[in-house]
């Protein structure tokens, strides 16, 4: 069991660090992750990052960061702007609200939260696409996509959470001078 890490670094620094990591993950999602044998599914590391952010470092900077990362995905991928920004902001809000009642930080719990967050994101994307893009018959195939993407994200979550925790510890060591 791992207790929630106590941050010694200012929320702004954490937000900037996580946003920079998010941009790196975006690049990964656009290039190297397409080499993985997962068919059309691209592992959504950005979602996992936003969930971690919402669980452990909810701040105004984190909200803006999640929104900007969603917007960045829109800029490089979506047909219209705002669709992923909306989905990511919604995911962040839900994770933030649920984080108040999550006391246990365990890999299984993190996987479960990411699974649910990915499902929420998938449903939000399909709903918004159906409304704003008028794509007919989207629901039929979307369920398989939503489930597959959520499963991949949930499997990756403990690994990414661990990396982010280590990165955060490193930042704390660098920032806080030891007496």
């Amino acid at each position: 069991m791992i207790l929630s890490p106590t941050s010694y670094v200012s929320p702004m620094k954490v937000s900037l660090l996580f946003f920079a990591i998010g941009i790196l993950l975006l690049l990964l999602q656009m290039t190297f992750l397409h080499l993985l044998p997962l068919g059309p599914i691209v592992p959504d590391f950005i979602l996992v990052l936003c969930v971690y952010w919402g669980l452990h470092h909810p701040s105004v900077g984190a909200v803006l960061g999640a929104f900007m990362l969603g917007y960045s995905v829109d800029v490089v991928s979506s047909k219209i702007l705002g669709i992923n920004a909306f989905a990511m902001s919604l995911v962040f809000l839900i994770v933030y609200l649920s984080s108040r009642s999550i006391w246990l930080h365990h890999p299984v719990v993190s996987s479960l939260v990411v699974l649910l967050a990915s499902l929420v994101k998938g449903v939000a994307l399909v709903l918004v696409s159906a409304i704003f893009l008028s794509v007919d018959g989207l629901w039929l195939g979307a369920i398989r996509y939503i489930l597959l993407e959520a499963l991949v994200a949930a499997v990756l979550a403990p690994f990414v959470f661990n990396l982010l925790r280590r990165g955060q510890s490193f930042l704390e060591k660098v920032t806080v001078p030891t007496e």
């Binding site: 909200v63 702007l81 705002g82």
Partner: peptide, 29 residues
């Protein structure tokens, strides 16, 4: 956090609506 989340949600909906209508002329980001 709650208020800024709601603001971002509304902002993204505004961007979505404007983009869907083709009214989003300038995107600085």
């Amino acid at each position: 956090v709650l208020l800024s989340s709601c603001f971002c949600l509304l902002l993204s909906l505004y961007i979505l609506t404007a983009a869907a209508r083709g009214q989003l002329r300038r995107d600085p980001v």
